[in-house]
C-alpha cells in the first residue's frame, strides 16, 4: 500500500442530491487500496454520518481522508454554526433535526455516537459560531 495518500471532499449545506458521495468515494478508494473490508465498513459508516451532519446541520464544510502508514484519518471541518453543548450532542437519541429532516429518516440522534463507536480514536471540537471539527483515527 502507498505510504501516504490524501484526498479532500467539499460537502455542501443541504445538498441532498450529492450527499453521501464523499463517503462512497472514500469507500471505493480504500477498497482499491486493499484495506480490510471490516475496517472499510467502519470508515464508511463513520464518514457517512460525518458527511450527513455537515450537510444537514452546518453551513457547509469538508472531509479529509488521509492514509498514513498503518493509520487512516478521517477529519472534518465545517463553517459553523458550531454545537452549543457537545456532551449533549454526543448522547444517543439527542437531535435538533427539524420536522422536514426527520421525515427523510434523519434525526435519530445516532450519528455522532455511531462515529465514536466505529473509530478507534474520536475527537470532536466545536465552537459557536465558528464551526465543528472532528478527527477520527482507524488502525489498519
Amino acid at each position: 500500500m502507498a505510504d501516504t495518500y490524501e484526498m479532500t471532499f467539499n460537502v455542501g449545506s443541504r445538498d441532498f442530491s450529492s450527499a453521501g458521495d464523499a463517503s462512497r468515494t472514500i469507500k471505493r478508494t480504500l477498497k482499491q487500496l486493499g484495506v480490510d473490508s471490516s475496517i472499510i465498513r467502519r470508515i464508511a459508516i463513520a464518514s457517512y454520518e460525518a458527511e450527513m451532519n455537515i450537510a444537514i446541520h452546518s453551513l457547509g464544510g469538508k472531509i479529509d481522508l488521509l492514509i498514513d502508514g498503518d493509520r487512516i484519518f478521517v477529519e472534518t471541518e465545517d463553517y459553523g454554526p458550531g454545537i452549543e453543548n457537545v456532551d449533549l450532542a454526543m448522547t444517543e437519541g439527542w437531535s435538533t433535526a427539524g420536522h422536514e429532516i426527520r421525515e427523510m429518516g434523519f434525526g435519530a440522534g445516532m450519528g455522532l455516537p455511531n462515529m465514536k463507536k466505529c473509530a478507534d480514536e474520536f475527537y470532536i471540537e466545536s465552537e459557536v459560531p465558528t464551526g465543528t471539527k472532528i478527527k477520527m483515527i482507524f488502525n489498519i
Binding site: 462512497r24 454520518e49 450527513m52 429518516g105 434525526g107 445516532m110 455511531n114
Partner: peptide
Amino acid sequence: DLLSWVMAHAGKGSAWITVQTHMNIIAV
C-alpha cells in the same frame, strides 16, 4: 426507516425494507 439506526445495525447483503424513498437510501 431511521437512517443512522439502519447504518449502525443492518448487515452486509441484507434486503432492506423501508418507507424512505429519497436518494440518500441509495448511499446507505
